[in-house]
Design a protein around this nucleic acid. Sequence first.
DNA 1: CTGAAAGCGCTTACAG
DNA 2: CTGAAAGCGCTTACAG
Lengths: 363, 363
Amino acid sequence: MPHARLTIKQVAEAAGVSTQTVSRVINNRPDVAPETFQRIQRIIAATGYAPNMFARGLTQGRSHVLGVVAAGQLEYFGPSHILMGIERQAADSGYSISLNLIHELETTDVEPLLTSLFSRQVDGIIWAVPEVGDNRSWSNEVASDLLVPVLHVGGIGGRASLGSIGIDNYAIGRMATEHLLLGGARQVGIITGPPRWWESQQRKLGWRETLQAHGLPMHEQLVAIGDWGATSGEEGLYRLLDQAPELDAVFASNDQMALGVLHAAHRMGRRVPEDLSVIGVDNIAEASHFWPSLTTIEQPLHMAGAQAVREIDSAIRQARQVRRAPEIAVPLLTLLQPKLIIRESTRPTGMAVDDTGSLAEAV
Amino acid sequence: MPHARLTIKQVAEAAGVSTQTVSRVINNRPDVAPETFQRIQRIIAATGYAPNMFARGLTQGRSHVLGVVAAGQLEYFGPSHILMGIERQAADSGYSISLNLIHELETTDVEPLLTSLFSRQVDGIIWAVPEVGDNRSWSNEVASDLLVPVLHVGGIGGRASLGSIGIDNYAIGRMATEHLLLGGARQVGIITGPPRWWESQQRKLGWRETLQAHGLPMHEQLVAIGDWGATSGEEGLYRLLDQAPELDAVFASNDQMALGVLHAAHRMGRRVPEDLSVIGVDNIAEASHFWPSLTTIEQPLHMAGAQAVREIDSAIRQARQVRRAPEIAVPLLTLLQPKLIIRESTRPTGMAVDDTGSLAEAV
DNA sequence: CTGAAAGCGCTTACAG
DNA sequence: CTGAAAGCGCTTACAG
């Protein structure tokens, strides 16, 4: 099956028809005589002709390309899984993806990137860069100038024409803390992600409000700041135990930091979960093989990415029908719900640590 | 900075010049009067005009887009890191990336994908799908029909016009096994990756030939087949110990499986590294926080991806000068060398296990 | 240094 | 059911 760079003209000549007729066949239009249709199709198959998308895009004003802007840290669990969700649904919906990674999440100038995306005639933009500081403020300024639908994934800042789809990170914080409390914890520490990340802030907020709702102490001694890396989790636990020796549970804001916590607990001879309950977030592939296996919270990242594509696709279709730029209606905010995965690193629900430090049935 | 969908014609009118003159400015041609040049540039900046890449591509026969085909398993360490290397260098070299993920590595029909890439006028194709079974045989058949340079990343099968760039996986196998032997190991087991993967095969070959070179036994009882996942590493160790109770070292073909091995060793009360040395491959971020921290082998994946882009870029430039399809010269095979990272999961070099099972200085 | 003409490979009305 | 004409937004020779 050769791939010579043929044009519609050559196919038309070979079939003895005009280029429009070939065009109709390529686009599966009904108004072609069955016999003609098949003859042309056979020629296309035999020659391997593939229409030039540039020419098509030029006339149709549509590229079938989605601009996807994501975090360059694909080794992070969140960014890579969202990207996989996007890619899969995009392929299913007939879009190809122009991938653009941002490496400096907070300081990158988005102006040239937007220009470049428009230049390449993308049909829509999925902005899957984590919200850090005010790195979405650009979208407030240019919102009305955007030529194509823009959808944010994760975070709630900025103003995207189609709003934002993400995970309810506040719920993650609540869910994790509730679970620790149900296991009898009284002093629940947290190791946060980088403070300027929206995810970090939401998870911490959920932790704090849950403690407050239970009338439990919430002092700064229970907080250690991490950076998503395992090392910061390890150092975090040392710091927490230093500040709050009575600590009996830790909410690590992701699984890597939870791993660091487990590591540090081993070194200090603290038993997990008997002395210290540990919970993470993400449910990375390794989590069930940590020692002990890690209780964690799973996020529907794949689904968030897929839904982002579906929404932008429907916006694109709609805008084409109306033949004008998409309206900036009420920006939507969709938050998908996380899920608790219970393993061995947290004390079972209904158990409490008695004064001797051993497990006892609660209430 | 508005992004109205302007055309070169409107810019030309605003500047009171012809479209060619604007074109010259956009393309930074020298033959424009300085004063004219600046006037036009100012208008472009003020209006946010961005040239339509479809129109440009149509006339120039060049898209500045690289088709990147990669494994859909971005949660795997290798695929994601190669992709990051590609993306970064592509951006630096002025290419944007059309990302295409393959989810069924061995059974996906590449024909429609290739057609789609050609359709989108990519300047070149980087085929970064791991070699599994004969999933590169397609490139033998279509090699002479390819319209653009194609470069393989990883593996040595198939026939890409520009050959292949990858990591020396045989060297990984040798390096890992040598290190275990230097720590006094006598019975070195291996947990392989999936047997049809080129990487798996090469790592195993390196292991086997190293054992043979040292006159050590190499029976099938020392082999367990894994699937890259931690669970398969755990089960692998159980199987190995069952088949070869004297086992004193394990080469896990990646870090995730090594984690499973550590997990299983814990459960069975085997001390690592005193009773069992364990080495992995990849140096994932968590490896230094395993318990004990994991000795492993690091691959220059980022560099492989970056070099792939540089080579394909130079081929694209060359082909354009000659104004014909790139020659299929001697297919190049570039293998980058891995690096040993020594941590606590392997016995120190020069130490041997004495008959009592405790460490002793060797020779 | 600048512009008029033609063309890249398609699709979109419009005729017939 | 099929085709001749015009146009999408650029760039490439070619004049001047």
